[in-house]
Design a protein around this nucleic acid. Structure first.
Lengths: 218, 218
DNA sequence: AGTGCTTAGTGTCTTTTGTACACAAAGTAC
DNA sequence: GTACTTTGTGTACAAAAGACACTAAGCACT
């Protein structure tokens, strides 16, 4: 092996999740580049000379959504020699979680389109992006049960029912109301704000907030 | 950013763990290259043109130990622009677990030395290798509690006490014998072989084996 | 004012899991 | 056969997770 001859590009790909209503969504872009014209993929790009991978992921996220992620974490580096038909590219996948509220997607000329797609409907993505997406989902599920990342998918204040919807969207199954509340309160990571809010023509719900925006293992 | 001008090397670094006696050890090499002469580091190297990262990690492990890892997993990719004084190198860390039994370390001319070092004594490593090592230890602890990776640190058949030593070495604290046994048997991942073996001048112990060499989440 | 509707919010029992703790069993050495 | 060392087990308690039914608070409609 001759190090000086190594010619591998280094990229990052972002799996950007949000929850809208009762469903988990992922941000996809529709490609323009020729053999993959019209195909959907996760947004990504090459890493700059003086950027860390984290920097690059943050930059790409901002380019697509204009926001800073509530949560951004490196997942895994994918390296199959033929994963990219345009040449040897090793790509590090990141997972970003954002609150859908107040996000305006930016349609750039780089892509044919940018949109939120239901996680369950994201099939036939470009490159190895289906594999990356599946990996991200698994990690997301893990975090949900073991850390407090849910805060990054919600606005600063929320009702327990809204929080429950996030859990249900990601787990893909209904939760039992009383046990869910007991579990969340028992983890000691959320606190009541004292305020309550009307979400419809019925009994108002209390607003809660996460005690810390930092990730906490249980 | 001009993709064609990107000039980043891609490497892997291996954190190779084993347990000897009651202690966790990590395989380190002593460097020859000038400004880092004599400094200890984890073995690593550039990725070949047609290799995946997994391939490269497997190759490097074999070059140092001559064995295939019982367990090999990608950990994280480190990318600080100045992490390597010789130039921009992005490195993916891998963790390998091997059974110390029957391993002959290969002293190659590439290094001043190769040796097992107690985990607790591995200070002042080259590059960002202390950070990588700490990351690997955390992951190892997680696997110990949630999967059956301990199998890759032991010979095929072992006594429960030997298994307990592995857990104690990694956790860094003693375990309670009865609870440890109940926990291990309750996970349903080990089975008695029916054989028993003398480990000294006292009551013989039963030999167990892992039911599967595959990693199993609890 | 009263009835019906919808969601918010709580208490208790059961099962499972983890933890603490003490003694009998099976070998060897002398 | 006695002393020694390790193997090997049972039980009680505490904590966490899961199942389950009812009351409370608001609005809409009459």
């Amino acid at each position: 092996m001759h190090p000086s001859t190594q010619n591998i590009k280094v990229a990052v790909d972002n799996v950007i999740f949000t929850v809208i209503g009762n469903k988990l969504f992922v941000l996809l872009i529709q490609m323009k580049k020729k053999p993959l014209e019209g195909v959907w993929a996760m947004p990504g790009g090459l890493v700059g000379e003086k950027e860390t991978l984290d920097d690059a992921a943050t930059r790409i996220l901002r380019e697509e959504t204009g926001v800073k992620a509530g949560f951004l974490e490196q997942l895994h580096t994918f390296s199959a020699p033929k994963r990219d038909p345009f040449g040897r590219v090793v790509s590090t996948a990141y997972m970003a979680l954002v609150s859908a509220e107040g996000i305006k997607l930016r349609t750039t000329s780089k892509y044919m389109g940018v949109d939120w797609m239901p996680y369950a409907g994201a099939k036939k993505l470009a490159y190895d992006h289906n594999q990356i997406l599946a990996y991200a989902k698994t990690r997301l599920e893990w975090h949900l049960e073991h850390t407090n990342i849910a805060w990054s998918l919600l606005p600063r204040e929320f009702t327990l029912t809204e929080l429950q919807r996030v859990y249900e969207a990601i787990r893909g199954r209904k939760a039992e109301k009383r046990n869910f509340r007991k579990m969340m309160l028992g983890r000691d990571i959320i606190a009541s704000t004292g305020k309550s809010v009307m979400r419809g023509a019925w009994r108002p719900a209390q607003l809660y907030r996460f005690k810390s925006g930092d990730r906490v293992a249980k």
